[in-house]
Design a protein around this nucleic acid. Structure first.
Length: 280
DNA sequence: CTATCTGTTCTGAC
DNA sequence: TGTCAGAACAGATA
């Protein structure tokens, strides 16, 4: 599932492809993944797409929004009647042209085009809520500031880090404290900053915190530039993969860019990668 | 075949 | 109230 750069890439795609489209119908094949009343969105027009951390919000012209979380393996793929979403020859069903066995929700627009939601693990969800109640429905204090915003300052980080002895990597991935960072960018961000993922958050010096802030913002920016990471199933709205993994420094790598051997451990149940030479 | 991974986050036990 | 394993699910990989 996407992290901030992946979701942001999809958000841009939605604006590009879906703006001003009218929802004619929605087919819900797996009811548990769709929360809310489909009647609230049928006949409405898409006017905007926003993002809260890793959650997408599709804004409609009738006062409702569709919130979408893709979790680990969710995909949103847009197809008009003539285009093929996924080019070329594919062996796996999951990479095939939707709809297929893992397509769980299908939006049909009045011009005959479709938006397909695929998710083979079925962790993701769609939820219809009033646009005004988006924050309320997600939980007002559930998302910390996002990298790249004014609130995401060295001062803010100093404050939250000083309060916990947990490994720094877990704090970076805690959505309540910081919004949008997942496993890939946490690993690579710490590498760029030269800080070991296991370090206790409160042990970071002011200088390290400032380095970490810059590193996180840099790695998120790289993710955006490369259209996200496609280690496994992530694709953008046109069904294309992102290229961040081509430049990933430690995440899922055997060696860092300098040829040092990377050490892999488990931290909070997640694969954690670091270079014992470059990170202290 | 078995064990262990996987871009996330919520829940329930202690 | 904080922390942590396990759950939700369906593969792929060694």
């Amino acid at each position: 599932m996407p992290e901030l750069p992946e979701v942001e890439t999809i958000r841009k795609g939605i604006i590009q492809k879906l703006k001003n489209k009218k929802i004619k119908d929605v087919e819900i094949r797996v009811p548990k993944l769709f929360i809310g009343n489909p009647r609230d969105i049928i006949g409405a027009k898409i006017i905007d797409a926003k993002r809260v951390a890793k959650i997408l919000e599709i804004v409609l012209d009738n006062g409702f929004s569709i919130l979408i979380h893709l979790k680990m393996t969710g995909q949103l793929i847009y197809k008009d009647d003539k285009s093929k979403a996924v080019g070329g020859h594919t062996q796996k069903i999951y990479d095939a042209d939707p709809p297929h066995a893992y397509t769980h929700i299908i939006y049909t627009f009045s011009d005959g085009s479709h938006l397909y939601f695929n998710d083979f693990r079925k962790f993701g969800w769609h939820k219809v809520v009033k646009s005004k109640e988006v924050i309320k429905s997600l939980g007002p204090d559930k998302f910390g500031p996002e990298p790249g915003t004014k609130v995401f300052s060295v001062e803010y980080l100093k404050n939250i880090f000083s309060k916990t002895a947990k490994p720094i990597k877990l704090v970076l991935m805690d959505q309540q404290k910081i919004g949008g960072i997942g496993n890939i960018y946490a690993n690579d961000g710490l590498y760029i900053a030269g800080i070991l993922p296991t370090r206790s958050a409160k042990s970071l010096s002011d200088q390290e915190i400032s380095r970490l802030k810059e590193a996180i913002e840099k790695v998120i920016k790289l993710g955006l530039e490369y259209g996200g990471s496609s280690e496994n199933t992530y694709v953008n709205i046109e069904g294309k993969k992102g290229r961040y993994m081509e430049i990933a420094m430690v995440y899922q790598q055997k060696q860092d860019p300098k040829g040092h051997e990377i050490k892999k451990i488990q931290l909070g149940g997640r694969g954690t990668f670091s270079c014992p030479i470059c990170q202290k």
